[in-house]
Design a binder for these strands. Sequence first.
DNA 1: ACATGGTATGACCATCTGGTCAACTTTTAT
DNA 2: ATAAAAGTTGACCAGATGGTCATACCATGT
Lengths: 213, 213
Amino acid sequence: MTTMKVPGSGTRARNESVILEAAERIFARHGYRGASVQAIAEAAGLPKSNVLYYVGSKRELYVSLLERMMARWNAMLDDIDEDDDPGEVLESFIRSKMRLTRQHPQGSRLFAAEVLQGAPFLQSYLHGELREWVRSRARIFERWAEKGLMDPVDPVWLIFLIWSATQHYADFEAQILGITDQAQLDDGDYRAITDFLCQVILKGCGVRAPSAT
Amino acid sequence: MTTMKVPGSGTRARNESVILEAAERIFARHGYRGASVQAIAEAAGLPKSNVLYYVGSKRELYVSLLERMMARWNAMLDDIDEDDDPGEVLESFIRSKMRLTRQHPQGSRLFAAEVLQGAPFLQSYLHGELREWVRSRARIFERWAEKGLMDPVDPVWLIFLIWSATQHYADFEAQILGITDQAQLDDGDYRAITDFLCQVILKGCGVRAPSAT
DNA sequence: ACATGGTATGACCATCTGGTCAACTTTTAT
DNA sequence: ATAAAAGTTGACCAGATGGTCATACCATGT
């Protein structure tokens, strides 16, 4: 019997990952206060005591989920400078954000629930890292507008527009499925929606279509 | 001592309104499960027993808040037909939705929290009334596209784009205030944001500016 | 064989949950 | 004045809440 030593295949790693996934679902659905450790444990298929053995406390579990989501978000933020093509950059931003939403809908909803309750655990992140990121992109958008590469729209509101339009498909999934009468959105839907958003938003702020189709 | 008989000034009406307002805040923040009757009672400045005396139960209170919000939304839906001007209609839709968001941010957040948890109380509304409303507008948008009055974009996704972009300023207020480093958004901000959205979205789907400024 | 360190979990605790109820005061109608 | 109706509230209940803890299990190295 050769015991595997593959990293991440230990009991701890396996259980922690099961717990994180279950907890993300429950917290996303019911928010921090509305989620019970008992419910998370049941979703993970473990006794409550075992869940607390691994994660310490409800609070720690919640914070580590938020941190994981922020890490995913940070990993997505590619560097740009003012010599890049506005169309390419904007399109890649929309597509990246949409991919994040699609690949981590529960994480997106968790983030939404946290912000809905006033972002008590994310104040420093919003006022720090994220604010700086937005400011730096905004400066570049303004430079582009000065050069006549796009309309002189407020760059911060442009970022919020992209953020909201993409985020929406995770947070309001229930509404979208209800209205479109579908069981779920498939790859084709997501591709079409992404194309739609790229087309409308780029045209809307006067960016010429990227050179390469 | 002349006792006033003004409708709505009775004890019941006054207390119910205080309770509804407090409950909207708490439910919006913490969702259905996360909100406690005790917390609502404290926010309303009344004993818990008194709150339950007026509203019956937590569930009834929640449902009546949702109904109130749906009524506000329904009151906003103006009728249009295919002979109207696309630019005017789209702009008026964006402005109405933004006004709703601004005037009832707690209601907007309550709705968001409800949809986040899978819209258990709104299934029939989403599959019924709201779906029909979206379908009817979508047909008109398609007619406009056929007439060449706007680009042939998918009308349902266009509606979701407007919905999300406006809804965002209520639901993600904490994020926006954190990033822009403001205490709150004032009338000027809202006017500028609304103008921005009208400009970008109308231009984005190839609608000519409305004849009347 | 045995010690060791991680894993597992039922029993338990103080506090909070939504909701009921009986007792009480205030307002209104006659 | 008086009775009926409306409003008010503390005490209370059964069940859920987050968290602790002592005990048991189990694979490993020696």
